[in-house]
Computed example of a mutant assay.
Amino acid sequence: MSHQLVDTTTANSFLPMVSVVVPIYNGETDLPELINCFLSQTYPKDRVEYLLVDNNSSDRTLNYLKISAENSSITIRSFSENQIQSSYAARNTGIRAAIGEIIAFTDADCRPQSQWLKSLIQPFVKPDVVIVVGEIVALPGNTLLEQHANSQETLSQKHTLGHSFCPYGQTANLAIRRIALEKVGLFRPYLTTGGDADICWRILQENVGRWEFSPEAIVQHRHRTTFKELKSQWQRYGRSNRYLHELHGVKLMREITLKECGYRLGRWLLKEVPKDSVKAIAGKATLVDILNTPIGLFTARARYSGQQEAKLPENAKMIEWL
């Protein structure tokens, strides 16, 4: 990543039109807080529109969106994507309607901090920057699993930006220059996971421009609180791995066998638990630290099972165009 110096006056007067696209499925309980976060953005209100796309919700999401669009002091436009059940199809609906030269993405269960958009848009002052990735941090959580995910920084973009195949940003906090989407196409509408990596990789591999990370562009997100939710999250990561393997040749993860699990749990019980317990008594470790190994094995097994069971549907290879 090359860095060019930018005149600060240019940077301060750089206020491109931005379209924020959010796919929503059964999000009526999340929407009031999300819209409050949009209301508190420091980016000039007349330079941003919020495109909220209902993806066939069975609750009152669509109704709430229409009311918000009519009664808000910011520009909210509501849409529906009822044909295809996929957040990427819903995002495409938003992108098509967008008027901004920068398209920013977040999710209904995210909480963008007030400086989010301003920080996310700033790097685009450099004309060769086509993707900007903001950071995702956890909302404060009380459960053991939330604390574990927090200690592992599960959601942090530094994992995806450090991906061994090619860097990418998660759509919970991502902005893309519109011209990049004109050149490589939109999201694959029938893909159900992995679409964020796919679109970033297509842009970067076409050499349309480069990416930059904006750590001050912060979105908060809730961690999973139950083993059932945790299992389904990691199975989805596994499915994503399989799809990206078929689309881009990404390496598949190896199996963590029951025998290996047994060996690692034995070592954990005999070596790690006594050592971490001593640390805990001294106030230098917590229950979360003690349980890192078994929870880590649980998520690795879930991810592998998701990868094993997944098969990329033929229509998921299709790319939509602007």
Results as ranks from 00 to 15, higher is better:
residue 167 P to K: 01
residue 229 E to H: 06
residue 52 L to V: 04
residue 145 L to D: 12
residue 105 F to E: 03
residue 289 D to N: 15
residue 25 Y to M: 04
residue 85 Q to T: 09
residue 212 E to S: 11
residue 152 Q to W: 13
residue 53 V to P: 03
residue 119 S to C: 11
residue 285 A to C: 07
residue 42 T to D: 08
residue 212 E to W: 01
residue 96 R to V: 05
residue 43 Y to K: 02
residue 109 D to G: 06
residue 211 W to E: 05
residue 315 N to I: 01
residue 210 R to A: 09
residue 273 V to Q: 05
residue 66 K to Y: 12
residue 166 C to W: 01
residue 212 E to P: 00
residue 149 A to R: 06
residue 277 S to K: 12
residue 166 C to F: 03
residue 77 R to Y: 02
residue 66 K to C: 13
residue 184 V to N: 03
residue 190 Y to I: 02
residue 88 Y to F: 15
residue 281 I to H: 11
residue 124 F to I: 09
residue 187 F to S: 01
residue 122 Q to P: 00
residue 152 Q to Y: 05
residue 188 R to K: 11
residue 131 I to G: 07
residue 200 C to Y: 05
residue 49 E to S: 13
residue 216 E to K: 13
residue 317 K to Q: 09
residue 301 R to S: 13
residue 106 T to A: 02
residue 304 Y to R: 06
residue 217 A to K: 08
residue 55 N to A: 02
residue 110 C to A: 13
residue 257 T to P: 09
residue 12 N to D: 13
residue 132 V to R: 03
residue 282 A to V: 04
residue 75 T to R: 14
residue 236 R to S: 13
residue 127 P to G: 09
residue 122 Q to F: 01
residue 81 E to G: 06
residue 281 I to S: 11
residue 313 P to Q: 04
residue 160 T to C: 03
residue 276 D to T: 15
residue 142 N to Q: 14
residue 226 T to N: 02
residue 290 I to T: 11
residue 90 A to Y: 00
residue 102 I to S: 04
residue 287 L to W: 12
residue 206 E to H: 08
residue 34 L to N: 03
residue 241 N to S: 15
residue 322 L to W: 08
residue 279 K to M: 11
residue 250 V to E: 15
residue 155 L to I: 03
residue 142 N to G: 15
residue 305 S to A: 15
residue 245 H to E: 03
residue 177 R to F: 00
residue 298 F to W: 05
residue 259 K to T: 14
residue 155 L to Q: 07
residue 258 L to H: 11
residue 76 I to R: 02
residue 110 C to N: 11
residue 174 L to D: 04
residue 321 W to I: 13
residue 89 A to N: 05
residue 315 N to W: 00
residue 296 G to L: 08
residue 115 Q to P: 00
residue 38 F to T: 06
residue 219 V to C: 10
residue 247 L to N: 01
residue 195 G to V: 03
residue 104 A to C: 07
residue 314 E to W: 02
residue 12 N to R: 13
residue 98 A to H: 00
residue 51 L to Y: 12
residue 45 K to F: 00
residue 104 A to F: 04
residue 13 S to E: 14
residue 164 S to D: 12
residue 273 V to K: 07
residue 111 R to Y: 05
residue 160 T to Y: 06
residue 78 S to F: 04
residue 222 R to Y: 07
residue 32 P to W: 08
residue 42 T to R: 11
residue 218 I to R: 13
residue 33 E to R: 14
residue 313 P to N: 08
residue 279 K to P: 01
residue 292 N to H: 12
residue 125 V to T: 13
residue 116 W to C: 12
residue 61 T to Q: 08
residue 238 G to S: 09
residue 114 S to Q: 14
residue 78 S to M: 01
residue 313 P to H: 06
residue 151 S to C: 06
residue 226 T to R: 04
residue 22 V to Q: 02
residue 112 P to L: 10
residue 70 E to T: 09
residue 242 R to H: 10
residue 65 L to W: 09
residue 282 A to R: 15
